[in-house]
Amino acid sequence: MSEHYFTSVPSTEAGERTHVFTIRGREHTVTTASGVFSADRLDKGTQVLLDHVPQPPAQGTFLDLGCGWGPVTLALADASPEASVLAVDVNERALELTARNAAAAGHTRVQVAEAGAMAHELRRTGRLLDLIWSNPPVRVGKQALHELLLTWLPLLSPQGEAWLVVGRNLGADSLAQWLAQQGWVVDRHASSKGFRVLRVGR
């Protein structure tokens, strides 16, 4: 099986490079590398998500689920510099890049951690999430994706919301139906460029 961006320890050479991307109106110089999701561009799905999410609250605990090299983390921290932004992934190279890119942007309230470790810590402390933004890794397969969402969505606060972007041809509508069957309130908030943006709440 070929290596994917959701491999925890990429075996490919990092081949780091520098890019300049405009993320929700702010220009960022970032470092990316091979072995992470969308290393050479701002992924179209991520761009659709960032184009359609509402402005986040000024404060709270926010999560970038599946952070890659960090575009969603940067967008959250840019929009709400007083919020605590948690960035998680299973890919250790992605975590390192997100930490570096957040630091380079001057963001001091970003915490980067391996996904399982962060989920465990949140459950241990009872800390809840006010907001999740995610371009989830649908290519891990339906079962793994469902397990991922069943891990993180219950960590939302009572008024918390998750905003997910999923390709229409990659099961966005069936995922929305499944989430509703699990008892979540799901709104198909937007459709653009072959993607749906879903708002998920209690």
Rank of each mutant, 00 (worst) to 15 (best):
Thr7Cys: 13
Arg199Asn: 05
Ser134Ile: 06
Phe21Pro: 00
Thr18Ala: 10
Leu128Phe: 13
Glu161Phe: 03
Val112Gly: 07
Met118Ala: 13
Arg127Leu: 12
Val90Arg: 13
Ser191Arg: 15
Trp133Leu: 07
Phe195Asp: 04
Val138Gly: 03
Asp187Ser: 15
Asp40Phe: 02
Leu150Phe: 08
Ala115Asn: 00
Asp51His: 10
Val48Leu: 10
Ala180Pro: 02
Ala117Cys: 00
Val30Ser: 01
Arg188Gln: 09
His4Asp: 11
Arg93Pro: 08
Asn101Gln: 04
Asn169Pro: 01
Leu155Ser: 09
Ala105Asp: 13
Pro54Ala: 03
Asp89Ala: 11
Leu155Asn: 12
Thr61Ser: 13
His28Arg: 12
Asp43Cys: 09
Leu65Met: 13
Val30Pro: 00
Gly15Trp: 06
Thr22Leu: 09
Arg123Cys: 11
Leu153Met: 07
Ala119Pro: 04
Leu128Asn: 04
Gln59Leu: 13
Thr61Cys: 14
Ser157Ala: 15
Ser2Lys: 12
Val186Gln: 11
His107Leu: 05
Ala14Lys: 09
Val186Gly: 05
Leu76Tyr: 00
Ile132Pro: 06
Leu175Tyr: 11
Leu128Gln: 15
Leu129Gln: 04
Gly45Lys: 00
Leu74Ile: 02
Leu86Tyr: 14
Ala83Lys: 04
Asn101Phe: 00
Ile132Val: 14
Ser84Pro: 02
Val30Trp: 06
Arg199Met: 13
Arg199Phe: 05
Ser84Trp: 15
Pro10Trp: 12
Glu27Gln: 15
Asp78Pro: 08
Arg124Tyr: 01
Gly68Asn: 03
Arg100Trp: 00
Ala117Ser: 14
Leu50Arg: 06
Ala117Trp: 02
Gly167Trp: 00
Ala14Cys: 08
Arg124Ile: 01
Ala77Cys: 03
Arg26Met: 13
Gly160Ala: 10
Arg199Glu: 00
Pro137Gln: 09
Trp69Gln: 07
Pro71Asp: 01
Gln181Val: 01
Arg17Ile: 03
Leu50Val: 11
Ala75Asp: 11
Ala104Gln: 13
Val85Gln: 05
Thr108Gly: 14
Leu42Glu: 00
Glu147Gly: 14
Gly35Ala: 04
Tyr5Phe: 15
Thr12Glu: 13
Arg188His: 15
Leu131Asn: 03
Ser38Cys: 14
Trp69Cys: 09
His107Glu: 05
Arg199His: 07
Arg123Pro: 10
Val110Phe: 12
Gln159Thr: 10
Arg202Thr: 03
Ser38Glu: 10
Asp64Glu: 14
